[in-house]
Design a protein around this nucleic acid. Sequence first.
DNA 1: AGCACGCCGACT
DNA 2: GTCGGCGTGCTC
Length: 757
Amino acid sequence: MARSQQRKLFDEAKLPPEDEDAGLYAQVVFNRPLRESFTYAIPVDMVGKILAGKRVLAPFGRGNNRTTGFCVGVSEEPPTTQKLKSIAAVLDEAPLLTPSMLRLTKWIADYYACGWGQVLDAVLPHAVKQRSGTRWTVFLQPVPEEKRPEAKLTAKQQRAFESLIDLKRPATIKELAQSARCGADCIKALVTKGWATSERRRVHSRPPVLAPIVWDRPRALNPHQKAAVDAIGGAIRDGIAKTFLLHGVTGSGKTEVYLQSIAEVVKLGRETIVLVPEISLTPQTIERFRQRFDEVAVLHSHLSDVDRHWHWQRIARGEVQVVIGARSALFAPCPNLGLIVIDEEHETTFKQETTPRYQARDVAAQRSRLENVPLILGSATPSLESWLAARQRRIELLSLPERVENLPMPRVTTVDMRHEYRSGARALSGVLRRAVIETVDAKGQVILFLNRRGFSTTILCPSCGHVESCEHCEISLTFHKKLDRLLCHFCDAEFPVPSRCSSCGLPSIRYAGIGTERLEEEVTALFPNYRCARMDSDTMRSAPHYDKVLTAFRRGEIDILLGTQMIAKGLDFPNVHLVGVVTADTGRNIPDFRASERTFQLIAQVAGRTGRGQTPGRVLVQTFNPDDPAILAATKHDYHRFVNEEMPTRKEFGYPPFDSLMRVIVRAKDEEVARHASKILAARFRACLSEFPPGAVRVLGPAPAPVAKLRDHYRMHFQVHSRQPALRQKLLEMAIKDLQLPGDTEFTADVDPISMM
DNA sequence: AGCACGCCGACT
DNA sequence: GTCGGCGTGCTC
């Protein structure tokens, strides 16, 4: 530290601090997997400028490299530590995080066992950190009359000064020069002569332009909807952190309940965050909100950095009434939050699969508690977690048992493919083929759903049984015909199409398993006169193309829309009279305790895409397991039946929603090293178990992960079950304290995992 | 995580 | 001697 600065610090210390925030020490966290925060001295010239929620640059580590960190607090108490370094620079003019957001991110770091700095870094959009689309601009303000100096102004300068006064707000050099028809020097002279003060501010260079809107009025509610809006409205007005589970079959008008609840929030001058799964973030969904409220900000993944930053700033200033977006929109910087809505709350995309591995539903509940606002969880097929919470009265259940306008539920029939298969290995059964013809001939539209992209999903040798798999992962490769390549859907590696078996060398290779690419080929061959479009992540590389296909489908320019997940959720087309589920069995064989839940939800969601107009809809579900309880319950639209069958199994095996789960994954390039390290780690967890009541926490495993090799790393995993999440947390902390695993291994703890792969 | 330190083997 | 390979331990 320079001597002059030391002296300044000494002089300054005698003076009382000017305001409460003028602490001399800052707590800083970094984007590292560290549990601690670090205390730094604040240089005199930065006292008052360093505030909780701003980013700082600080020397960190043995090399004292300048590292970006987040100030999470300032204090006047000197720290007990001997080592103390000083902050090098402040990076933000204003805090990027409110005290409430700091508390929320701290909770996430503790609950999901990662660094606070990692959470803070993940929660702020890149565009905000980079301040995309903003520039430093100089603003001038006139000096008040009594303080103006002696120095005389020239005629031009006088004119410029008058226009500055007329503006009655800080003005830029450029606009003053324009209005006074003079050069920039003439304006700068106002400052040098002391007639105006200048100030540098960061401003957006170009605000995005929004398309005009057609307004819509609130719709009449049925008694169930009314009861829901009343209950939610009460909690909004009282400002209480209450969670509601809005359980309504597809087409029961959940969105109208959200909209009218949000209207209550808007009346109070507060903001609402609406979370929807990324694939439901369609122009259609967005329009419904924009048609009711003046200020809606939509946070898509396709937003440019400039637009994203601009929206973020507007939200932070409280200028936005409703924020709609996928998972990360939960961290929108709303200054006066009034309500959080999570639509399709059961969707697995609300769980982030990279650090911080948070579940948006649970983080939303935490934000709701911290800010005293209600939370609405909406779904036709609620997650078992939410359902149990409602049953135990931890959250309030609101049911919408009827479809609006009393539309009937679509008729769902299973097609037993065990019988169909004898007539040749085609994607579409005779029943489904006939149904497609009947529907299109009657001027109706068809959706065909298949949850696998590509042409063939298995490339195998009929003589030796070898299945072509990825070099880097233990995953079978998918043949993509248009690309003429084999693709790994886990690591995106590409391989040439083999002319002979890579194991035994025989040239007869079988392409088995049907993907959407092959389905499209079959459909166009079967129905050459029907107009067909495919929607999956291969054909929908760009957002405009996606909108184009959906618009064409809406206009009736497409008869058959086929695709993956993308077409399963949220779409609302009244003319869809038939939905075909090409196979309901994908995912049935994966080793995941939620497999049944996924199957049930998927069929129920896809079925909801039809029967939204006057004609009753029809759904055909092709399956090799027509007696599967989840499939049977879904065909009967019977959520309760599904729950009553699934809950006892979960309870018996100690799975969620009864036990809270943590999955620990150990990775290494060498298979033996991974196996060994996972054993050591699991043993450490078990060694700590004596500290807990017997049976309160259980450790299961280790075993190879279902995807045993991924991106050249062998993977082992084990599970920690507990009725009380706090105990599981404690165990993790104890087990990884002073942990030393072989250098070439890595491990991750996934709290409340959603994928067991 | 990221990075400096240090302790080994292979080289001018 | 010293360059650099990677394990290992710490970060206010």
